[in-house]
Simulated scan of single mutants.
Amino acid sequence: MKLKFFIVFLGLLVQTSFAQTANWYEDAHQAVAASNKANKPLLIFFTGSDWCGWCKRLQKEVFNTQEFKTWADKNVVLLELDFPRKNNQPKNIQIQNQQIQAAFSIQGYPTVWIVTPEVNDGKTNFVPLGRTGYEAGGVSKWLLTANSILKNK
Score class of each variant (00 low, 15 high):
V76P: 04
F83I: 06
A33E: 14
T47W: 00
A33F: 10
V32L: 09
A72Y: 05
L81R: 02
I95Y: 12
L81I: 10
C55L: 08
V77M: 07
K37D: 09
K91G: 00
F68V: 02
N92M: 09
E67K: 15
W54G: 07
K56T: 11
P90S: 08
E67G: 03
K37V: 07
L81W: 04
Q59V: 07
F63Q: 00
N75G: 10
W54E: 11
N75V: 05
N39C: 00
I95Q: 14
G48N: 08
L58S: 04
C55S: 13
W51Y: 09
V76H: 01
R85N: 03
K40F: 07
K69M: 10
V62W: 01
N39H: 12
W51C: 04
L58F: 04
W71A: 02
T65G: 04
K60F: 12
K56M: 13
L81C: 11
E67P: 00
Q94M: 14
D82H: 01
T65A: 05
F68W: 07
C52H: 13
Q66S: 15
N87P: 00
K86G: 09
I93K: 12
A33M: 12
V62R: 01
V76A: 08
E80C: 10
A34H: 12
N36I: 13
K91L: 11
I93Q: 10
K86P: 03
Q89T: 11
D82E: 11
F83Y: 13
D73L: 09
K74Y: 07
G48R: 06
V32R: 12
D50W: 06
K37A: 14
F83G: 02
E61H: 07
N64K: 09
K60V: 02
A72P: 09
N64P: 01
P90N: 12
N92G: 00
V76E: 02
W71N: 04
Q66P: 14
K86T: 09
F68C: 06
P90M: 03
D82P: 01
N75I: 01
L42D: 07
E61N: 11
S49V: 00
T70F: 00
E61R: 05
P84Y: 00
T47S: 15
T47N: 14
L81P: 08
N88D: 15
K56Q: 14
E67W: 00
Q89D: 06
T65L: 04
V32W: 10
F45R: 06
T47K: 06
A33W: 08
T47P: 03
I95P: 06
V32P: 08
A33D: 10
K60Y: 13
P90E: 14
P84D: 02
G48D: 04
N36W: 09
S35K: 13
V76Y: 07
N87E: 13
K56G: 02
T47G: 12
F63K: 00
L42A: 04
W54Y: 15
F46E: 08
N36G: 14
F68N: 03
Q59E: 15
L42T: 00
N39V: 08
Q66D: 15
Q66E: 15
E61W: 03
Q89A: 05
